[in-house]
């Protein structure tokens, strides 16, 4: 546990030292704020006391931002050779991966906390459903966890950041769009399975305020699976 936190602290420091964290926070707040309050299907347009527009825009913003955040995590260590330094210290593969995963998740959590002013403002204008807000934020956090897992995995594959970023988007788009589309057009069990694998199914039900363990298990499961894949990449390197 202590080892994980040591690595998390270093990664967080690297995020803030490289300005990556500030850029992410500013862009995320700017983007989601603009579309939530000013433009498009914004809160004033739909004339309801709901954070739905924010959740929807944040969902896509995070989809594109998180791979940019995670692309460096392991590919840079592979490129510089520092992975050797790290893994020959008394830490396990899991502690390294968890440390990096937690650092990214914390950064996203900070970004989400900074948007708490949105529900507060909306609640002054109308009758905001607290449960819906809670489960919406939880959905965003769980979705982020899944994207961080995917990003960490694609970052563990090689030593090129751009490849890692694009690969994460490529994998992500399957969960985001393709599985859902196929699920709707295919009949029977394959259709159901693909539908279950589509993030939007789970995300939408959660943002509507429905807390279902199946949805939570989906996000947690994919995150865990991706960490397992990342670990196997680390192991593979040591057997190379």
């Amino acid at each position: 546990m202590k080892q994980i936190w040591i690595i998390t602290k270093r990664e967080l420091q690297a995020y803030f030292d490289s300005l990556m964290a500030y850029i992410l926070l500013i862009l995320f707040l700017g983007f989601s704020g603009f579309f939530t309050w000013i433009y498009g299907n914004d809160i004033f347009f739909i004339k309801q006391a709901t954070l739905m527009p924010f959740f929807n825009i944040a969902y896509w913003t995070l989809f594109f931002f998180i791979p940019a955040l995670t692309m460096r995590l392991l590919s840079e260590e592979n490129r510089m050779g520092t992975i050797e330094l790290l893994l020959t210290k008394p830490v396990s593969n899991w502690q390294v991966l968890m440390g990096k995963y937690v650092a990214s998740l914390l950064l996203i959590a900070i970004a989400l906390i900074l948007t708490f002013s949105y529900p507060i403002s909306v609640s002054t204008m109308g009758n905001l459903d607290g449960g819906e807000v809670f489960s919406g934020y939880l959905a965003l956090l769980l979705f982020s966890s899944m994207m961080i897992g995917i990003g960490l995995f694609t970052s563990s594959i090689g030593n090129n950041q751009i490849v890692s970023y694009l690969l994460a988007l490529f994998l992500g788009i399957f969960f985001q769009i393709i599985f859902g589309m196929l699920g709707q057009s295919l009949p029977g069990i394959p259709g159901h399975v693909l539908d279950y694998l589509s993030t939007s199914t789970h995300f939408e039900s959660m943002t509507r305020g429905v807390l279902d363990t199946r949805d939570i298990l989906f996000f947690a499961g994919i995150s865990f699976l991706m960490l397992v894949f990342s670990e196997s990449m680390l192991i593979r390197k040591r057997f190379a």
């Binding site: 690297a14 030292d17 050779g81 520092t82 050797e84 330094l85």
Partner: peptide, 8 residues
């Protein structure tokens, strides 16, 4: 090749 975290 002495790898190090160059940004620290």
């Amino acid at each position: 090749n002495n790898p190090l975290y160059e940004d620290m």
